[in-house]
Write a protein that binds this DNA or RNA. Structure first.
Lengths: 332, 332
DNA sequence: TTTGCTGTTGGCAGCGCTGCCAAAATGAAT
DNA sequence: ATTCATTTTGGCAGCGCTGCCAACAGCAAA
């Protein structure tokens, strides 16, 4: 059963109460067009008195173009996406845009269905994670004519606007750093890469770089499901049970890396002398651990901010590379 | 500059292409009312051919009651709120509702402004954190006639629906647990309590309980700003610098507690024999640390789920107590 | 007084859909 | 063939607002 709104005061009622025309009320409330000070006062008084709340559904329908921005994100468990939303929502709120979201659970099919549902709201823009989408999604977004922003991955062709950085470069630099530090027997602990294609890109570039320096990946442990601290801990435990002579482990992200770090603490494995640990994301928590985590800090909040700014400004199609920062830390 | 949608296919065009009336198309698409199988096929074929995407703005305006649910949350940095959103959005998506959100930054004035902006979208429900709101917010929500759900705090009068648990009880039980374990010289490290009133409630009940057992709080360290691991670490460091004989410290939440835990690890302070640590929230990470964190696990995802279910079912006003679980852990 | 501005204002036709109602088609029963 | 009940269908008036246009007022210049 749908909820029915009660006592809905309309523009027309305000107009009548203020003794002016509807369009005058509309102009005053949107502060658009011209009207006298006296009219303004009368309208505002009526608005106040009646407790009028404009109906943006009607307003959006009547005008062309909405102020809704739709986010179709893979997850809310992975702090990455709340961070992006945080950056974006601050900018959007300032500009009187409204954020709408739904969660795909890293499922491309669901992404397509949710994107379609989003388009039904005729948003000003749709923001998606990454640049890998189903054919149907791409076709639909193209046809919609609404702005499309692809976030956090620049390794691919952008549909319209893309904001983020190269995950391949991140994987490459991570490998280069470990090699530079002298690690040669390197392992990997990751989560389900089929779902998180960005983590997959980092991993493959990481491996390529190792291979190019005659230090190919020694072992890997991939855990099903999402990344988590517990999976990181479990993954490292399993990896070390199989492979005893590793000198460094690359993790699919900081959550996983922290799990590995905790495993070492619990087992008395000296870090980084006995085993080095390297993560990805640059979470704040990694700076507060007894040894700061070696990782790559990604511009998550900034990605959201810039994306929102470009949408608000109706900027031309473009790819914005925000880069990332390698944090040397103390675990590698 | 607002974005203008292009090439918008309308219901009327689909109707014409399918050789049926508008209302027939509407019925078929909503699978509501009756129509023949042949009609259905013709309509769906036309929809497919034209790439029609229904306009929910128009649909919502025409019908009474929307399928938007508005979230007005304090923060996206604190994992609590993404967790609530996660639980809620899963249920909402299943029921073809759409989640909309904005972030107040723990500012009651901003909450009022954002709630007003939300009401302009005529949502089916507004979900807010806690039960402390400005007079203006309360008045506006009451007048809106839309469903109001207050989340994560049952210590107060609910406007309509409330889902969560008692923060006071959480504070009380935390204190009781520490006392039962024999700790008597207890300190507190917290973040800005004026903003996070729920943390404030926990703290005051915690103190009352200690006082009632002749073991009043020995010292406290309150850090300005939001909770974070780094602030927790810093807070404990400061507290211990001033007060040397504490045997346990209660933290405003797990983020802060983890910071304290890391400080102890870094300083070689034995846990819990030299100093016990107790948190709040029951984050997953607390189970993966070398010693599992002693804390209270809160039903964050479930809070979102239940809240969404009640809204979808248009349930009568009620307060749902989901309780919480005390995790004994190994740090206290 | 008339003219020509600029600044204000109201009327009203949509925006794209849904809900209501009456009309038409169908089918079963006589 | 006729009747009645049922299913299927189309027409059309809004939902509450915005955007356009015409109308009007006030005022300075002629």
């Amino acid at each position: 059963m749908e909820f029915k709104h009660q006592a809905t005061v309309t523009l027309a009622e305000v107009a009548e109460a203020a003794g002016v025309g509807e369009s005058t009320v509309s102009r005053v409330l949107r502060n658009h067009g011209s009207f006298s000070g006296r009219t303004r006062e009368r309208v505002m008084a009526a608005v106040e008195r009646l407790g009028y709340v404009p109906n943006r559904i009607a307003g959006t329908l009547a005008s062309t173009g909405s102020r809704l921005v739709a986010f179709v994100i893979p997850s809310l468990s992975n702090i990455v996406f709340p961070d992006v939303l945080r950056g974006a929502s601050a900018v959007l709120e300032e500009n009187r845009y409204q954020a709408v979201f739904s969660v795909t659970d890293y499922d491309p099919g669901k992404e397509e269905a949710l994107a379609a549902a989003m388009l039904a709201w005729r948003p000003a823009a749709v923001m998606l994670a990454g640049c890998e989408h189903t054919e149907g999604t791409v076709k639909m977004l193209r046809a919609s004519g609404c702005r499309v922003v692809e976030l956090l991955d620049l390794d691919g062709d952008a549909l319209d606007i893309a904001v983020g950085f190269s995950n391949r470069a991140a994987g490459r630099e991570s490998a280069a750093f470990l090699l530079k530090r002298g690690y040669r027997r390197i392992g990997y602990v990751g989560h389900d890469l089929n779902r998180d294609t960005r983590a997959g890109k980092r991993f493959s570039s990481f491996c390529e770089t190792l291979g190019a320096h005659d230090a190919p990946l020694v072992a890997r442990e991939i855990l099903p499901g999402a990344s988590s601290v517990e999976n990181g801990r479990l993954g490292l435990e399993r990896l070390l049970a199989r492979t005893t002579d590793l000198d460094a482990v690359y993790f699919s992200n900081d959550d996983m890396a922290l799990g590995g770090y905790f495993h070492c603490l619990a087992q008395g494995i000296a870090i980084p002398s006995k085993l080095a640990i390297f993560g990805y994301n640059g979470l704040d928590i990694g700076r507060a651990t007894p040894q700061p985590l070696s990782t790559i800090r990604t511009p998550r909040v900034a990605t959201g901010e810039i994306a929102a700014q470009l949408v608000v400004a109706n900027a031309p199609p473009q790819a914005v590379d925000l880069g990332f920062e390698l944090i040397e830390g103390a675990t590698a």
